[in-house]
């Protein structure tokens, strides 16, 4: 069971409080009617499914209820960081070279 840091509550809590919400930084097209079927399928279904550093979303379901983003290594399952929804992707180089705030 993972330990996850909620960037809104600023607390590290067990996975049972959270719901996974899929890959992060997949924005719904601003004007869906203008995108092609391929682009819509890409938005709906295609996922990078990374083995390694993965940008993903979680919801603090049994806490503040907020959706937030996380960077996690899908091999070790260790979180590198978590950050608020809407914030840009954190810089990976910085992350890998500094200790995690999510987890411990």
């Amino acid at each position: 069971m993972l330990l996850i840091h909620c960037p809104y509550c600023n607390e590290t809590l067990p996975e049972l409080e959270y719901a996974y919400a899929g890959e992060a930084h997949i924005a719904r097209p601003a004007n869906p009617s203008e995108v092609s079927d391929e682009e819509w399928a890409e938005f709906l279904f295609m996922r990078s499914n990374v083995k390694g550093i993965h940008y993903e979303r979680w919801r603090h379901l049994h806490g503040c209820g907020r959706f937030f983003n996380a960077v996690r290594d899908t091999v070790s399952d260790k979180f590198l960081t978590t950050y608020e929804a809407g914030a840009p992707r954190p810089d990976l180089d910085t992350l890998v070279n500094t200790p995690a705030e999510g987890g411990k």
């Binding site: 719901a19 919400a21 924005a27 719904r28 979303r57 919801r59 379901l61 209820g65 907020r66 959706f67 929804a85 809407g86």
Partner: peptide
């Protein structure tokens, strides 16, 4: 509710 919160928080903040 989860679906509504998802759209509200992340697509239409």
């Amino acid at each position: 509710l989860n679906m509504m919160e998802d759209y509200l928080q992340t697509e239409w903040p």
